[in-house]
Computed example of a mutant assay.
Amino acid sequence: MPPDLTTAPAAPRPAAPDHAPLLEIEGLKTHVDTPEGIVRAVDGAGFSVPRGKIVCLVGESGCGKSMTARSVLGLVEPPSRIVEGAIRWHRDGGESVDLAALDPRGEAMRAVRGREIAMVFQEPMAALSALHTIGDQVIEAIRLHLPLSREEAEERAVRLLTRVGIPRAAERLRSYSFQLSGGMCQRVMIAIALACDPALLIADEPTTALDVTTQARILDLLGDLQADTGMSVLFITHDLGVVAEIADEVVVMYLGTVVEHGPVDDIFHHPQHPYTRALLGSVPRLGTGPRQRLDTIRGTVPHPSERPEGCPFHPRCDVAVAGVCDRGEGPVEVALGASRGVRCVHAGAEGSAS
């Protein structure tokens, strides 16, 4: 008999073996057809999200982070398309499915989207409909996947809104998004994402549009929810301060390619890729004088249609090796442990990429 899905909050998921993957992405390539040619938005990305862990996907704007997340959920619309790779989703019962092989509009993908994997988008005011009440939107998300009556779904909606910290939740069901603050709207979006107790929550820059105080509250909320339910989280951000606060593991992405991944302590204290080191070096620190120049990464992220040959970062890299980093597909990934990998010719060397 399936578990009772009519109550909230959900019971924590059973513990899984260390490093057991819930989601595995291998060689993912998502391209966009344009009049000027093919844009390789995601170009061979690969990483995994372990069960019960928070994985932060980081990188500058234009590096393919959001497109990777949308590819997982089949939210890639023409002229974009997944052309290669696998997105393996491992269910709790042991069944696995390649999401990249499913019809994005088919029943199998719709059963995963929202029910097993949910997503919180960057702009809550834009993601919520201004024409429907908050209650209608939360209830619709619930009834889309769960066999509940309108009354049962409404009761669950009140519990969900209360769970994410919205005061007078029953009254808020009759409110519209334009009557709420940005922080409250983001809490509603999180409630909708949690409506069916997903195993994986994808959060795409969920705090970027919020003020600093509200950002901290939303991060605390997500951390508490993850700890309470045991769900996995794929958190997309460019803010390394956020990464340091919430991440268990970090995936560094540049121009559609994963250049480094590993446990958060390894990434922060022993970065191996020049891009990772440059990102960390550009973070403002306490004690910086008023006239002290901040470190920056020279150049800018090129448009994916202008992706350089070899390692995509080599034109901005101070330690690139001529004839190696600028040829072919660039360096292959070097494994530095069970969950640690770096795509750089300097990987593992003493004083790597310094």
Rank of each mutant, 00 (worst) to 15 (best):
173 L>N: 13
323 G>A: 02
276 T>M: 02
320 A>Y: 00
7 T>Y: 11
134 I>C: 12
353 A>T: 11
74 G>V: 05
242 V>C: 02
120 V>F: 07
268 F>V: 05
346 H>R: 07
108 A>S: 13
230 G>V: 03
271 P>H: 08
141 A>E: 00
140 E>A: 12
188 V>E: 03
195 A>T: 12
81 R>S: 14
160 L>F: 09
353 A>Q: 12
242 V>F: 02
223 G>D: 02
63 C>D: 03
327 R>C: 02
20 A>C: 11
291 R>M: 08
299 G>D: 14
108 A>V: 13
250 V>Y: 00
182 G>Y: 00
183 G>C: 08
278 A>R: 03
15 A>C: 02
65 K>T: 06
60 E>T: 12
321 V>T: 12
180 L>T: 03
34 T>D: 07
132 H>W: 07
83 V>K: 08
217 R>Q: 15
52 G>C: 13
153 A>R: 01
121 F>I: 11
80 S>R: 15
258 V>A: 01
20 A>I: 05
261 H>M: 09
210 L>N: 01
5 L>E: 07
338 A>R: 14
111 A>K: 13
15 A>Y: 07
245 E>K: 15
251 V>D: 02
32 V>R: 01
324 V>T: 10
195 A>E: 10
260 E>N: 03
172 R>M: 07
17 P>R: 08
322 A>S: 15
216 A>S: 05
201 L>C: 11
43 D>R: 11
134 I>Y: 01
279 L>G: 08
195 A>R: 06
220 D>N: 10
318 D>Q: 15
70 R>P: 04
110 R>G: 06
242 V>H: 00
166 I>E: 01
129 S>W: 09
184 M>R: 02
260 E>I: 03
48 S>Q: 11
257 T>R: 04
104 P>S: 04
85 G>I: 04
97 V>M: 10
322 A>N: 13
248 D>A: 01
295 D>I: 02
83 V>P: 09
204 D>Y: 01
351 G>C: 11
217 R>H: 12
118 A>V: 00
1 M>N: 12
22 L>M: 09
221 L>A: 12
